[in-house]
Design a protein around this nucleic acid. Structure first.
Length: 135
RNA sequence: CGGGAUGGGUGCGUGACCGUGGUGGUCGGCAUGUCCGAUCAGCGAGGAAAGUCCGGGCUCCGCAUGGCAGGAUGGUCGUUAACUGCGACCGGGGGUAACCCCAGGGAAAGUGCCACAGAAAGUAUACUGCCGUCCGGCACGAGAGUGUGGCGGUGAGGGUGAAAUGGUGAGGUAAGAGCUCACCGGCCGGCUGGUGACAGUCGGCGCAUGGCAAACCCCAUCUGGAGCAAGACCGUAUAGAGGAUUCCUUCGGGAGCGUGUCGCCUGCACGCAGUUCCUCGGGUAGGUCGCACGAGGCUGUCGGCAACGGCAGUCCCAGAAGAAUGGUCACGACUCGUCGAUGGCGAGAUACAGAACCCGGCUUACAGCCCAUCCCGACAC
RNA sequence: GUGGGUGUAGCUCAGCUGGUUAGAGUGCCGGUUUGUGGUACCGGAAGUCGGGGGUUCAAGUCCCCUCACCCACC
């Protein structure tokens, strides 16, 4: 993994720009301890469909983790919700704030919600988060 | 054509773009690694992957021996690695039928229970009764006799109940009764057929033995315990406290103590002055293997009624770990709604549901579609 | 993965070793008391015993299957 200090903006920026719809393991939160860090100290944003928690990343990358608990449905339902959130994250990478760990917690209303509704909710959060960090 | 029974199959398709998890190859990077990146090839959820109700493989517990306890199963024969599965058959029950259902051993080994009702609920009894050629009973009566009591015979009728001492009919008798007879049922024994459950038949017994073992129990058979968080290795981390260490010896061993995989005993193994063993406590960060060729799938053929098995050919078919199959679009099926209806428009995670060590079953959930065989009824020929 | 528990009036719970009325509290409805309401008193209704099948003369209770929910441990 590339250390945060040696970001190499001149050489790697065009490559990243052409590949900005990728979503690999480096873009995800993988450990329970990472989830707990965000959930304990992060800032909270709530809509009827979801809860977003975010905190400044330690790795210099923007990473996301999605929680879909047993409360919202059975295994295929939870898988589908997680895949849709992942797809939204992947296709709108430019919108997210930089170097932030994000946890998205799905609420039960998100099961029946349309794809675009969920996308609008997340973009609204991203708008607010970017303004907050720029000020 | 209508209604029904049984068994089986399918579980959206094609294409484009953007992504994703393993596997293999090639190339590149530097922090030379089980690393990161690029690229190519190929693979990537189910019939139930589910529930976890059974059974096995596999792994560990030193071995998995014997017994008790506990648990499971329960017609017969087969099938299988094994089973509470499956197949065929037997017996019983239901249905007009196809077909479906049944934990379906033992009640003369013992214990227990059978409420209410009823005389009596199990080894005997006699409530209401019936009968008497007996007591020359007692009362009434002129008497015949009637009533009543005792004694004896009987166990048929009535009523109760889920169940009442085999059932129906005839004979018989004082009244009756398997007391006798016929038929049906039952029990015992023989013979025949069948591997067997059992069936058929002959003879005997007038019948001795009510039901409940999904009540305890008895009999037969099976059964050691835990589970891939099994288990092995690498790494990380920490704080200690308490206890045990004995005898005999012919040096082969024996006794004793401690420890051990759910309960116990037996048996077995290890340790018994080594910087050893045991118990309690404290503590850490995760990774690699196990882990994808298997009781494997498909096709053909042979044996078998079948479950299933043998042989030959062919194929390689998910391996994640906050956990991979998704998103968008086009065309076409399909379903639903609606309308100006051989069509148009709109809606649709298309149903149920997501591998987590692996198999064999069972059970449950399921939009819609398809196939086969059979039964009943109506009509026509 | 393993083990255990619960399901009975609207709600919270009883219901024993099967036995003939499935009860209690609370809530609900009606009446009495009060000027009215509450309280108090009297009366009443209300249960597929989670679902299906079986054993039994008889099942909330025994057996099997199944559904939903909850808990514990590794």
């Amino acid at each position: 993994m590339v250390p945060p200090a040696t970001g190499e903006p001149a050489t790697s920026a065009p490559a990243v720009a052409s590949r900005n719809e990728r979503f690999r393991k480096a873009d995800r939160l993988l450990k329970r301890s990472e989830f707990l860090r965000v959930q304990r100290r992060g800032r909270r944003f709530t809509t009827p469909h979801l809860v977003v928690l975010s905190i400044e990343s330690l790795t210099g990358r923007t990473r996301v983790g999605i929680t879909a608990s047993k409360k919202i449905g059975n295994a295929p339902t939870r898988n589908r919700v997680k895949r849709r959130f992942r797809e939204i994250f992947r296709q709108n990478k430019a919108a997210w704030p930089e170097a932030t760990d994000i946890v998205i917690i799905a609420r039960s209303a998100s099961v029946a919600a349309a794809y675009n509704t969920l996308q609008d909710d997340l973009l609204a959060w991203a708008e607010r988060a970017k303004r907050g960090t720029s000020k």
